[in-house]
């Protein structure tokens, strides 16, 4: 049913730390792997070994450069982007078949591929580019928050988190329940000023991004100053003679 639930018991989602992410794309690959081998249609590639390869991914890492208003060096920010599991998910309400839905128990936004007609309207309605129509299967693919891992009792408990979070070597991704104010993710958002993407779209995303911390600035030294300053301006002895001799040339 494409009506959004009024409230959800849990608000599961991710916190992505833009200060910590190193842009290694390990989350992208582990996501593609898990979601190709498990739930739903595999994430296909087209022309995978040819001149123009492209394919379906549920998570992609953009890289941006930010020029601080206060001056100083530009900052490179690696920016992983996947479904934000919005509270007011516009992708769900536009679906004509009821294939897209938001779960009332945990807030996860999913696609029932057996109902999807591949019209693409949900991808149009999403401001974040979180949905991609698989070019071989013809159905809409999106992040499931690894719904087939987080409740999977066949996996060791340590693995019952989304594949991207489990894989991240930098610890830049965190999974938890935003409805619980004492959860790891709620505390991170509180401490680090977690933010919404494109809040003016009114989607109320669950996933939050932690902004990069401000970079240190070197007081009194310009960035392009020579690192070594002369030890002494008027050398004596042999160096003094050499200095004079070279000056005279």
């Amino acid at each position: 049913m494409t009506q959004l639930p009024e409230t959800t018991a849990k608000k599961l989602g991710l916190v992505i730390d833009l200060d910590t992410c190193v842009g290694c794309h390990a989350c992208v690959i582990s996501c593609k792997g898990w979601n190709t081998e498990n739930y739903g249609a595999p994430l296909s590639d087209v022309d995978a070994y040819g001149a123009d390869p492209h394919g379906t991914f549920l998570n992609r890492v953009h890289s941006f450069e930010v020029q601080p208003d206060t001056g100083g060096c530009a900052q490179t920010v690696h920016f992983p982007k996947s479904c934000l599991h919005c509270e007011d998910a516009p992708c769900v309400t536009v679906c004509p078949t009821g294939a897209s839905y938001k779960r009332s128990e945990d807030g996860i936004v999913l696609v029932n591929e057996d109902d999807c007609i591949g019209c693409g309207l949900c991808a149009w309605a999403c401001p974040y580019g979180a949905r991609e129509l698989d070019q071989l299967a013809g159905v809409m693919k999106k992040c499931t928050l690894c719904v087939d891992r987080i409740y999977n009792e066949n996996l060791p408990e340590v693995d019952r988190i989304p594949s991207c979070v489990r894989t991240c070597p930098a610890g830049a991704r965190h999974f938890g329940d935003f409805a619980d104010p004492d959860s790891n993710v709620s505390k991170l958002v509180e401490m680090r000023g977690g933010m919404d993407l494109m809040p003016e779209q009114g989607t109320k995303p669950e996933n939050k991004y932690l902004p990069p911390r401000p970079k240190d600035t070197l007081a009194g030294v310009s960035a392009d100053a020579p690192i070594l300053t002369p030890v002494t301006d008027s050398p004596k002895g042999f160096l003094g003679w050499l200095d004079k001799a070279l000056e005279a040339l």
Binding site: H54, S63, E65, V66
Partner: peptide, 21 residues
């Protein structure tokens, strides 16, 4: 990107070398 609080944002590197949907 939510990075406006730092300053002006520009694309440094797209997430994929080819195209996508």
């Amino acid at each position: 990107t939510g990075l406006g609080s730092i300053g002006k944002v520009r694309m440094y590197e797209p997430p994929h070398s080819g195209t996508n949907y």
